[in-house]
Nucleic acid binder design. Structure first.
Lengths: 103, 103
DNA sequence: TTATATTTGCCAATATCTGACAGGTCAATT
DNA sequence: AATTGACCTGTCAGATATTGGCAAATATAA
């Protein structure tokens, strides 16, 4: 249930001494929603990550990596072949990267 | 657009000299849907993979790995930090595995 | 042309996710 | 014990996304 992204957001928010009720309006949501995001039962929208990073004075890419890792984990979390699937996907990404370099 | 899973299914189906119209009904769908699945514009349901593997005399886990890899790829395909996110997710999976061993 | 196999476009039906609110717990304060 | 402030949880209608199914288009071969 808990997510790496949510836990990191909470940690950063507390470091900044901010309350949910202070941060939530900046993201145009209510405190309940932000609470759920930190607890991992809702997803922040991908495009809101840079804004949130700004609010929490954090690195947007670092937050993005955690956010993506949560999405990836969600796909394979119950699968015995999770690591094999991850390897296969990694290969795909690497070969696409190579393609992009050569065009 | 194309998927590893879809391409593999087509390859296997042709090896078995089967037509879409022969395979589709066994999966309780029409040929159009199966065509889209092979082309990668639709997803086969996770739970239908073993049945399809049986029809195509293929290994269910092998197909599952491709299917999952497609889902994973879809999450990160447009992201610069794709590989970092994959690494992070891999770490999470590995540490969960360890947890399961010790309980 | 005709027949067969596959592909594509469309859209209604279904499934999933989100926003918003109400009511709840918990801890500190009076 | 009553109040306050911060946060958490459940619910559900509305918004979004996905799927199923049909019809028509395309492709290939005879």
């Amino acid at each position: 249930m808990a997510t790496q992204f949510g836990e990191k957001v909470r940690e950063l928010r507390e470091q900044q001494h901010l309350y949910l009720r202070q941060v939530a309006p900046l993201l145009e949501m209510d405190t309940a929603q932000l609470s759920k995001i930190e607890k991992g039962s809702r997803q922040l929208k991908r495009e809101q990550i840079p804004l949130l990073a700004g609010i929490l004075k954090a690195n947007a890419d670092e937050l993005l990596v955690l956010w993506l890792a949560d999405q990836l984990y969600d796909v394979v979390k119950d699968e015995d072949v999770a690591l094999k699937a991850m390897d296969a996907a990694q290969q795909t990404i690497k070969s696409k990267k190579k393609q992009n370099r050569n065009k």
